[in-house]
Every structure is written in structure tokens, then in C-alpha cells.
Amino acid sequence: MIDTTARMLKPTTPEEVQSLVAEAGAAARHIEVVGGGTKRGIGQLDPVDLVLSTQRLDRIVDYAPEELVLTAQPGVRMADLEKLVAARGQMLAFEPPRWTRLVGSRGEPTLGGVLAANLSGPRRIRAGAARDHFLGFEAVSGRGEIFKAGGKVVKNVTGYDLMKLMAGSWGTLAILTEVTIKVLPAPRAETTLLLFGLPDVRASEAMAIAMNGPWEVSAAAHLPAFAARARPLKAEMPTTALRLEGFEASVAARVDGLLGALKGYGRIDALDGEHSRDFWVQIREVEAFAGDPRPLWRLSLPPAAGWRGPHGLPGDALYDWAGGLAWLLTEEPAAKVRAVAKALGGHALCLRGAPAFGPRDGALGALQDRVKAAFDPLGVLNPGRLEGAA
């Protein structure tokens, strides 16, 4: 729950962040850590005494396009960052989503928030998650200590890979004050193949063929009838989409090969260039489900079994990551949704309508508690955010 009465502070230097955290720990106070504030509604917080925003830590520290490396403070807005790298023909290959309309939030997503939540878009199946592009950082722990990890080159990790730990920790372990990420050349061309009318199981087969072949598919999604009919796509039947990117001649050759492999799956159309890019923005932002009042779930599942999750729960689904990510609108109890995902070898996150995180129990829960105690023994940062509920 967002505390609207807590005082908000906006430090401008890492030293100010360190001082604020140290003072909070000494006074037994609790801090909510935010970037642009667009994901504040995800996860329930215990009461806090103040809100610390990284919005004014918004400087590009170093950008070396020829080295494919960028260092920035966490408050840099994603829109500004993507514009900067696009001007040099580069991109953030993990295709980070915004989700502002999806979760009904205001503000501008920031780089620190994206990394803290480990947010990744459709290209994750090809390029990896946000954590795979996270090379190094400087941060302030819940102990009020400044520490560093990683570096400013791609091959830099010895010992513990703390970037993987910070990505997805939702600000519960430390406050990032500087981050280094990998950027990649943007593709010169892209084509999206659209298959129509396939039921979920058949679409899963088609996506598996595409992903397991030599065509270097960079995104694969399936929209069942409800999602396909919704704005802004407004298709008349279920739609399965496969994206290929790269140099024009390479894309054309791979499209021809994939068309041959999928000839038994019915009619196939193609989207090129800007039309393809617009389509995948809609998938990345889950536009089909924005504004729907039902609880919204994000199920991470083994791709081959992805369709089984929503099929065990009444509701409406949209599949990304070749079936490995199932978005689900359902009124089913949270415990049942989490149980279905767990039985399939996955897990569930609720973006609205139910507690975001599940209960922390067993060996994994004990490990999480030990990690939290190591970085934030007094529970200063984002208290209760990952505690979860049944």
C-alpha cells in the first residue's frame, strides 16, 4: 500500500543517499525506495517513515558506443535513454516494458526501476533478461554502506555476480546509485509473420518449431480470441506472431525458410518495418488487457507447457516468450493461481487485484531471508515488499 503521508526526499548524490539510509537505520526508520514511481502499486509495503526517490540521480556518466557499454545514474528516464542509444543505431536489447497503462500508473519509468524489477520484453527469448545486460553498479546497502560490484566491460565478473542478485530485488537490498549496462546494435530490418485461427495448443507447436529451428526468431507470441479482438489489434480470430530481425537479406532468407516450415499451419501474413515495431510495442505493454478490471497475473512457465497454465484457470490469456510468459485475467483465488503455476514448474506475479508476491517458505524463503539480513539487517529498505501472501 502506498503511503501518501510519508515525506519524500530526492537526493542528488550517492553520499546523500548513504547519509539518509544510515540515519534511518540509526533511528529505526523505514524507507520506501522509488524511481519514477510507476511500479509503486506492485507489492504491499509495511508502513514507512519516508520515501526516497532517485529521480534527481539522473546523469549519464559515460557512454561508449564503440564498446557497447553505457553507465548512468538510476534516475535516468527510459525514454531519454532509449532515444540516446537509438541516435547511435543501438538499443537496449532486453526491450524493457513500461506498463504504465497496464497498471494505471503515472510518471516516467527509470533505468534503476527497470533493473530493480528485472523487466524484460518480447526479445527476452533471444537476447536474455534485463539482468543479463547488467554489467556493474554502485549502491548503498540497508546498512548505510556504499559498495560496488561488476565493472564497465562485458567480461568482468569474478566471485559473486551481485548484478543478478540486485536485478529483481525490487529495492529491498540496496539503493542503486550508478549502473552500467550493455547495449547492442539495433536491427536494420524486421518482419513479423502472423498466423491466424490457431488454438492455443496448435499455436504452441508452431512457436516451438520456429524457436527450435535455424531462423533466429527474436519474439514469439500468441493472442487467443479475446486478446486478439481487443484494442488496439482488433483481429477477427486468434493470432500467432513470430518476429525476425537483422540485415534485410538475412531476414528475407530466414522468412522464406520459416514460411516453408510452417506451411501446414494455414494462412500466414507479414508485417514489416514500422508496422511490425508497433505490433510488438502492443505485446510488450499488454495493451489488450489495459483497463480490464479483472485481476491481472503474469505467469512465468516452461514454454512447452505455457498454455496449460491458463487452461487450468478460467479467464482470458495472452502468451509471450513463445509460451514462457502467460498474461492472465482471472477472478480465481490467488492461492489457486499460484498453485497451478507451481505445479507446472513456474511462478506467478500479480500486477493488480491480489497480493503481488506469493508466500516465502521452504528452503528458498529461508535463503531470501538470509540475503535480506546480509544487505539490510534492520529492514530499512522497502519493508515487506517481497513478503508475499497466500
Rank of each mutant, 00 (worst) to 15 (best):
E205Q: 15
G159N: 08
I283C: 15
V337M: 02
L52C: 10
I31W: 05
P238C: 12
A356D: 01
R294A: 15
G150P: 02
D49P: 11
L81K: 05
I209Y: 14
L115Y: 01
A322H: 03
H347D: 13
I2S: 11
E332R: 11
R88P: 00
G171I: 02
D272W: 08
R40V: 08
V34Y: 04
W321R: 01
D62K: 14
G113T: 03
P65V: 12
P199M: 05
P314N: 08
A288D: 07
R308Y: 05
T240F: 03
S141C: 07
V217M: 14
T158L: 11
P109Q: 09
L364Y: 13
A189W: 00
L242A: 09
E190K: 13
F375D: 05
E216N: 14
G379T: 10
A339W: 02
D320Y: 04
S53I: 01
V201Y: 12
T158H: 10
V157H: 01
A189C: 00
S120C: 03
V255A: 13
G142Q: 11
Q90E: 06
L194E: 10
G171A: 08
P333T: 05
V340R: 06
A373D: 12
A335W: 07
G266H: 06
I209H: 11
G150S: 03
H133P: 10
L313E: 07
L115V: 00
G128V: 03
L198G: 03
Q368R: 14
D200R: 15
A6L: 12
F137S: 03
M166R: 09
G151S: 08
L301S: 02
D292K: 04
W99A: 13
G112R: 03
L351S: 00
A24P: 03
Q73V: 08
G324F: 00
K182F: 03
R360M: 14
D376V: 06
G35L: 06
G168N: 04
P14I: 11
P187C: 04
V201W: 09
A116Y: 05
